[in-house]
């Protein structure tokens, strides 16, 4: 059977270079969480819930089905790239204002999907928002307030 092989990896997370050594099959999600990017959540590990959504070169996708080594050299953005305590991103403000979360476990993924949507479609209609977040499951809210919040940012309300 032999020893497992490890590979060097270097990628940029939220603008910061991160390096490491990983096994071939390691997912980007596990790599990020092992490197303390715990804001990226593991809900299912099979691409079915969207909790682990990050932006890879600007596109929102599930990090649990992304091979870490394939993210080599790429720009990854997690929730922590959005805003800070003193300066929330408009989406973050809207999520708080509209109570677009309860337990908050889907929120990190939901916000990144919303970010990717607004980057390409700054004033989305409700139906486009619902389509965009359809891979991000939320078990708490019934989605309405999430759609309200994203729509409000699209309107320029926040």
């Amino acid at each position: 059977m032999g020893e497992k092989e490890y590979y060097n990896i270097k990628l940029t997370v939220n603008g910061k270079v991160v390096t490491g050594s990983v096994r071939a099959e390691i997912s980007l999600l596990d790599f990020l969480r092992d490197n303390n990017y715990i804001e990226v959540k593991k809900g299912c590990d099979k691409g079915d819930c969207g909790a682990c959504t990050v932006l890879i070169d600007g596109k929102a996708t599930v990090s649990c089905l992304t091979s870490a080594l394939q993210a080599q050299g790429k720009n990854i953005y997690t929730l922590k790239s959005l805003g800070s305590w003193d300066k929330l991103h408009p989406l973050q403000k809207a999520f708080v204002k509209y109570e677009a979360l309860q337990c908050g476990f889907c929120t990190p993924g939901m916000l990144m999907t919303a970010k990717a949507l607004l980057d390409t479609n700054p004033h989305p209609a409700r139906e486009s928002i619902k389509e965009a977040i359809s891979g991000n499951l939320c078990r708490c809210t019934g989605y309405r307030k999430i759609v309200d919040a994203i729509e409000a940012v699209g309107r320029g309300e926040l």
């Binding site: 715990i38 959540k41 929730l79 929330l88 973050q92 999520f95 708080v96 908050g104 990190p108």
Partner: peptide
């Protein structure tokens, strides 16, 4: 109050 931490990804689940 916790909502702000939740949208920032600060909560330690």
């Amino acid at each position: 109050l916790d909502e702000k931490d939740k949208v920032l990804g600060n909560v330690i689940y």
